[in-house]
Write a protein that binds this DNA or RNA. Structure first.
Lengths: 343, 343
DNA sequence: TTGAAAGCGCTAACAC
DNA sequence: GTGTTAGCGCTTTCAA
């Protein structure tokens, strides 16, 4: 393995000069620099990063912890992280937890052992006290989640208001019997989306009925199963707000199996705008999070910490957008509505 | 930061002994070992991995290069890799290339700079000569792809025979006008699947007609567009074999838009068995790769290289399975067929 | 069974 | 502008 000393020897300079050529080329006389560079090329010298990292005590690696790599929401955020990271010379590596807390704790060890300069968590499985104390010692950002009351830098969306908007859209379309399939209610995002649903109903003087709220677990199957329950109610709801797209699609499947049509008989709205939502039949009306932006913002927050800059504002909440497609039956009407407004 | 020296001092031993307790505990007297361990605990000592890695010139990290993290095929393989890696004390980190060669080359640098002990490539974008020379210098395994004629350790499936099987299934169902939507033909897997399609037709004395083969790019949209072309042919094909599930779903969409029914009017078969295939309406008949097994096998091959063991066999080709669902119209019939065979 | 000590390859403070 | 040199924290050989 060719090392810096070899380059130095052949170029008739000291190792310090070689190091300078690599990191502060402007401090080296042009002739020397060219000489060194040509020798580096000639010997095909690759700096030993392990040595460098050890010496400087930094890796230029950002660890992103994802609960699942199959989810397009996460990949959208990751794109934003990667974009911002590479602009600053950082490389992003992904640690997959498969939704298991122990893997999350395992990946945290990488950070503690300095295998990464910082970490972005795309999940909130760990105990919040652990997250807090981790955050006090290491650069850390939470994305998609944020732990109330905890001053951990985080980037998230307002699940409450964006869900409210989605449900209000259904109300504006004339629906009065609107059901909700929630996510697992131990998660903050599920609670938030549920809250938004209730707010929309209450603000429009509609009753929040227990029977019209069922807890799912974010899977297609659970959407299907909970929809089956709604179909069994005597006065079947005319619209469904599902806490994510997968469940919305599962609900659609159940409706179809009853020989009914979405959106004609039952309107359905999801959340997340996963890649498949637009390809589903019918295309799912849903709430899109600003994924790229969230990733970018998270990375910026992380960089501030790594660079030891003071963080003026550490909690960011970004805006979502309602994407009206076919499953809610409001596409044409929405257009008319917009035109009315704009005229 | 508490370091080994601190532990040594407090435990009244040398740093060497502390190091031994960590790596070869059996070589240390029990009393000493216990003492050291308690001090480690007391001081909450975490070894500096950067120093360790530098010294031992190894990271215990496996880098998996994925073209896209959104794809359930890749995540399936990764699960297998992770399983096998963790059994041997290795950690898996993912590098996302977003299907860009330059990112692939970029990640290779991590390997060259010893940021990872080995690498598994889940894509074949790089120049095959580069892959070859990389493989000569570093532990490397190709999964899902394999480069013909090149002795790079690889794990793949037989795209030809499994595609042949899929098309033969359609033939057995009575179809004679079977079209094929290929992947980008510069990729080995696309060529293989195309080849399997042709073999099936020829072996059954069916004509391979140029008009019935269109090149897609593995996206939903391309499946849709190519299907539109088939619909425009005077004698519309009665069955379609798409080189992946996304294109198969796109094709379904096109058929539906013509007011036709899948599978009644046109049967469609995909490839990959992505997570969504079973949820699509109709559920897609497809070819499933043994993803977990592929990942596991790849990791085993990589470990052999890392440990410097001789590799007896370096190219593995695993079996696929045809999953008959609704989109081919062969579900019931297949059952009858099986029963006939089994009786 | 334990300790002393020599580096691993690089960076950066300091001297010239 | 460039060279000398002292480590970074750990592992491992050698000697005791």
């Amino acid at each position: 393995m060719v090392k810096m000393r070899d380059v130095a020897k052949l170029a008739n300079v000291s190792v310090a000069t070689v190091s300078r050529v690599l990191h502060n080329p402007e401090t080296v006389k042009e002739a020397t620099r060219k000489k060194v560079l040509s020798v580096i090329d000639e010997l095909n010298y690759k700096p030993n990063m392990l040595a460098r990292q050890f010496r400087r005590n930094e890796t230029n690696i950002i660890l992103v912890v994802v609960p699942s790599i199959m989810n397009t929401v996460f990949s959208g955020i990751i794109e934003g992280i990667e974009y911002e990271a590479s602009r600053h010379g950082y490389r992003v590596l992904l640690g997959n937890t498969n939704r298991k807390v122990e893997n999350e704790y395992d990946l945290v060890e990488l950070l503690k052992k300095r295998q990464a300069d910082g970490m972005i968590l795309l999940s909130e499985r760990m105990d919040s006290n652990d997250i807090k104390s981790l955050s006090e010692e290491y650069p850390l950002v939470l994305a998609t989640a944020y732990i109330e009351g905890l001053k951990v830098p985080s980037v998230s969306i307002d699940n409450v208001s964006s869900s409210r908007e989605a449900v209000e859209h259904l109300i504006r379309l004339g629906h009065k019997e609107i059901a909700h399939i929630t996510g697992p209610l131990q998660f903050g995002i599920s609670k938030g989306r549920y809250k938004g649903y209730k707010q929309a109903l209450m603000q429009n003087n509609l009753e929040v009925r227990n029977m019209l709220v069922q807890e799912g677990d974010f899977t297609f199957e659970s959407g299907y199963n909970q929809m089956l329950k709604f179909m069994a109610i005597e006065k079947t709801p005319t619209a469904i707000f599902a806490a994510n797209d997968e469940m919305a699609m599962g609900a659609v499947k159940a409706v179809k199996e009853f020989g009914l049509n979405v959106p004609r008989d039952i309107a359905i709205v999801g959340f997340d705008n996963i890649a498949f939502s637009s390809k589903f039949d019918p295309a799912i009306t849903t709430v899109a999070q600003p994924l790229f932006e969230m990733g970018q913002k998270s990375m910026k927050l992380l960089l501030q910490q790594i660079q030891g800059k003071p963080i003026l504002k550490s909690q960011y909440i970004l805006d979502c957008e309602l994407i009206v497609r076919d499953s809610c039956g409001g596409k044409g009407k929405e257009k008319v509505l917009n035109e009315n407004i704009s005229t």
